[in-house]
Amino acid sequence: MSKILIIIIAFLISNCCQGQDNLLKKADVDSICNQEVYGTKGYIKNLPRYICIPDGFVIDDYIRFSDKDKNGENDFIAIKYNKKEDDQIDGDTTFWDFYEYNIEDSIFDHKCTLTNIVPLYIQSISFAYLAKNPFAEELFNKYPRRISHSLSFIVKHDTLRLSYKMDDVYGKTFIFSYDEPEGNWFLKEIEYFIGELPSIWWQNNEFYYSLRNSLLVIEKIKPKKNISIDQFNLIEAFRYREIEIGHLSEWHIDRIDETTEKSILEVKLDNCNGILLPKDWIY
């Protein structure tokens, strides 16, 4: 047998074994990787099979993809997960995993797990439930309220927006920008909004109907510190919510004449002198 033929056969055997090895690795990943979701798996169809969440948890939200460097290719993935709904108790944590694309290995690397950007779980925020459960009431008074998945976490290119409600009417959005040299997201601006209003506001009033499932920014402010997202503290962020709510109501919503326009979206909100906040207010 010629040396050339021996080399060709050896090459084919090597490729065959490598292919079998890759198939075994894929089968192994498929068997151990947890990508369990609520309902259909349709919204995670583009999630790489090697990206997994811990056992006992489920993906609770749509996967967020972004193109941070704006080159036309997604290089960022964010995944939200928590315990199954029936297994959650008051005070349980919700997690966000951030992944970034590694050009050298052509895969998404896990960068961090955040436990600080979603309010701790409360089974119910009804008055009856809170009155009977002091721990739940304590959490309710410390943390902001959650809003819908589609509005709470929005990422586009290198800008990330986290939104929360302060009460039934008003809320805050924290805008983070990605710093490439630091490899992290930093708080750059805060928006105050009115939105995702309860039915009592729009059921018999078309003026506010457009805000039943959307947000309207009514004021903006700069944070005192451009804090990184992993150091962001929700309790600190809503420490002075009563002052902020009072200001937004007095300077904006209470001054609207609903007879002059058909919708709040057509109203030109009055300018004001800004919120008078305590000296130790940070963001």
Rank of each mutant, 00 (worst) to 15 (best):
L12M: 14
N15F: 13
N15Y: 10
C17S: 11
C17W: 07
Q18W: 05
Q18N: 08
Q20F: 15
L23K: 13
A27S: 14
D30A: 12
Q35P: 02
Y38E: 05
T40V: 03
Y43Q: 10
I44G: 06
K45H: 03
N46D: 12
R49L: 08
D55N: 12
V58P: 02
D60I: 09
S66Y: 07
K80L: 03
K84N: 13
I89Q: 02
T93A: 00
F95T: 00
W96C: 05
W96S: 06
D97L: 04
Y101W: 12
I107E: 06
N116V: 11
V118F: 04
Y121A: 00
Y121D: 00
A128P: 00
P144V: 08
I147V: 14
S152V: 03
D158H: 08
T159R: 09
Y164I: 03
Y164M: 07
K165H: 11
D167L: 02
D168L: 02
Y178N: 07
E182V: 05
G183W: 01
G183L: 04
N184P: 04
I190S: 02
I194N: 04
P198D: 05
S199D: 14
W201L: 06
W201Y: 08
W202G: 06
Y208H: 03
Y208I: 00
L216T: 12
I218W: 02
E219K: 12
K220V: 08
I221E: 06
I227Q: 11
S228C: 13
I229N: 03
R241F: 02
G246F: 07
L248Q: 06
D254G: 15
E258W: 01
T259G: 00
I264F: 11
E266K: 10
D270E: 14
C272F: 08
D280P: 05
